[in-house]
């Protein structure tokens, strides 16, 4: 598998992502500086977390207009696989590669804690490490993770099986109006979505931070194992 991790000024989880990919594949991914103009030859582009350009205008807004995103858009048009986590998810929505937007957390505070996700999306390399309905634990760390989209789009995402992950309780119970479960107030408790062709995935929590047995557990590892399996080591 040839994976590349995009680094913008202000990206700060690129090392975490590289560490998770290395654990899963035994190979170190390539780091892609935001001014690069091509991502050709890669199997997978990952946009990791952080505060690209300080998130000063709107989370992900500036990064969505940087040179590498033109290349990433071209890559997407050709059916390329892209994973955006946290700030990466925000960037993918700003670049309109995924529908919807991420608003300030409903409680108006940064949230850094473990949460539980219910796996829902079908037929994607990002979800097939689990069975539909499985629940896994993962850290989250964001201020703007409150997913929103038009009711029509939300219906469509659900109808097409494009809700990849939902916030839930440890036992799998989803309760949209319970701030202890749907921590950031996301529409329909959506934590991650898929593109129409299911090759682009955006999610707010950080499965990459729970992939090492020495660092809290491997609950997030199935996501990376499945990706590696899809492309082969």
């Amino acid at each position: 598998m040839k994976a590349g991790v995009v680094v913008f000024p202000g990206t700060n989880r690129e090392r975490d992502m590289a560490h998770a990919l290395t654990l899963a594949s035994g190979q170190t991914p390539k780091m892609l500086w935001h001014q690069e103009e091509s991502v050709d030859g890669l199997d997978l582009v990952i946009i990791p977390g952080g505060f690209s350009f300080g998130d000063y205008l709107r989370s992900g807004a500036m990064a969505a207009h940087s040179p590498i995103m033109t290349a990433v858009r071209r890559f997407a048009e050709k059916g390329g696989y892209i994973l955006g986590v946290c700030n990466g998810f925000q960037i993918l929505t700003e670049a309109q590669l995924l529908p919807g937007a991420l608003l300030r957390n409903a409680g108006m505070r940064f949230l850094s804690q473990d949460c539980h996700l219910k796996v829902e999306g079908r037929d994607s390399i990002y979800t097939k490490g689990w069975s539909a309905g499985d629940v896994f634990r993962t850290p989250m760390a964001h201020g703007d993770g409150n997913y929103t989209a038009s009711p029509e789009m939300l219906d469509r995402l659900e109808g097409e099986g494009r809700v990849a992950f939902r916030y839930c309780r440890e036992d799998g119970h989803v309760q949209v109006d319970d701030p202890q479960i749907n921590l950031n107030g996301s529409a329909r408790a959506i934590a991650g979505v898929l593109s129409e062709n299911r090759r682009i995935c955006g999610m707010m929590p950080h499965p990459e931070n729970l992939t090492d047995p020495a660092i809290g557990g491997t609950d997030g590892l199935p996501l990376f194992k499945a990706i590696v399996e899809a492309f082969g080591v």
């Binding site: 700060n12 989880r13 090392r15 975490d16 560490h19 998770a20 977390g49 505070r109 940064f110 949230l111 850094s112 804690q113 850290p139 760390a141 950080h206 990459e208 931070n209 090492d212 020495a214 660092i215 809290g216």
Partner: peptide, 28 residues
């Protein structure tokens, strides 16, 4: 936890004992 939960304690991927888990925080 109201305080800790506003601080990113897992970034860099080396946090062995997060806030409150042990008498001292531990990173690898």
């Amino acid at each position: 936890s109201w305080i800790w939960n506003q601080y990113d304690s897992t970034v860099l991927g080396q946090t062995v004992k997060r806030p409150g888990a042990a008498d001292a925080a531990i990173i690898r």
